[in-house]
């Protein structure tokens, strides 16, 4: 909790949502804004909340957060490439073997990847260790498609996992893909889908984990991959 013996500044308040005393990964982006801009976000949020009180229409609140999220992350990243590889899908999808991979941080109950040797790490602890996570090699969890929701765990220090916990298909659409396989849209779904925590070392991903994962999927005779970041 914030230090109660002195007044907290607005800067400290807005920054506290990003891995601070009020960690809330939906709103960690506030820390990236100058005070005036973050203040405008809060002011507009409250104004729209006033409208909701009158008409009950909550969509405007969601839209407000969405637009600011887009605004906050609008900058370019650190990995720009000139062109890249392109593999055409050789067969129709209805004859292809498809795999699902997500950076959602899901795993099957009882098969916790145990990051940093910690058993049963909580979501809060994962958020506290985000910097350590960003320096580490990611671990891939194999998840049988169709795993019941109550057996599907999720933990990730980079995003708010409540939606992914409530309904894994929001970021790990294994049930939807099973339906599409049954309907014949997909030739064959690889029986194991995969998930990892995407907040990881890019160097280790590119040099160590990534090439291993490629070999794994080649062994699984995969034609195509549906990749879902969070």
């Amino acid at each position: 909790m914030p230090d109660q013996t002195r007044n907290e500044s607005f800067e400290e308040f807005k920054n506290s949502f990003a891995y601070g005393s009020r960690t809330d990964l939906n709103f960690k982006f506030l820390a990236g804004f100058p005070d005036e801009e973050a203040g405008r976000f809060v002011q507009d949020l409250l104004w729209k909340l006033g409208d909701v009180i009158d008409d009950g229409q909550c969509d405007r609140i969601v839209e407000h957060v969405y637009e600011w999220q887009v605004h906050a992350y609008a900058g370019a990243g650190d990995y720009a490439y000139e062109g890249g590889p392109f593999t055409p899908l050789e067969k129709p999808l209805s004859q292809s073997r498809l795999v699902l991979m997500s950076s959602s941080g899901h795993f099957v109950e009882g098969e916790d990847p145990g990051p940093f040797g910690v058993k049963n790490m909580t979501q809060a602890e994962a958020a506290e260790r985000i910097l350590q996570c960003l320096r580490s090699e990611p671990t891939l969890s194999a998840i049988p498609v169709g795993t019941p929701r109550e057996k599907l765990m999720v933990r990730h220090g980079g995003y708010d996992v409540r939606g992914a916990r409530l309904d894994p298909n929001a970021v790990f659409p294994h049930e939807i893909l099973l339906d599409l396989e049954e309907e014949g849209v997909i030739g064959e779904l690889v029986p194991e889908a995969y998930s990892f925590v995407g907040a990881c070392s890019q160097r280790r991903l590119l040099n160590q984990s990534g090439p291993r994962w490629v070999r794994l999927l080649q062994e699984r005779e995969v034609d195509a991959a549906l990749l879902v970041p969070v």
Binding site: A74, Q202, V214
Partner: peptide, 30 residues
């Protein structure tokens, strides 16, 4: 960072002959 990680996985898979599609949110479009 997740979008970049998955982007890197996509590039590695494509290099090895596996076709990929990445689904990302608008905030990370750039």
């Amino acid at each position: 960072m997740c979008h970049v990680s998955v982007g890197h996985v996509a590039r590695l898979l494509e290099e090895s002959g596996i076709a990929t599609v990445v689904v990302g949110i608008r905030a990370f479009r750039p």
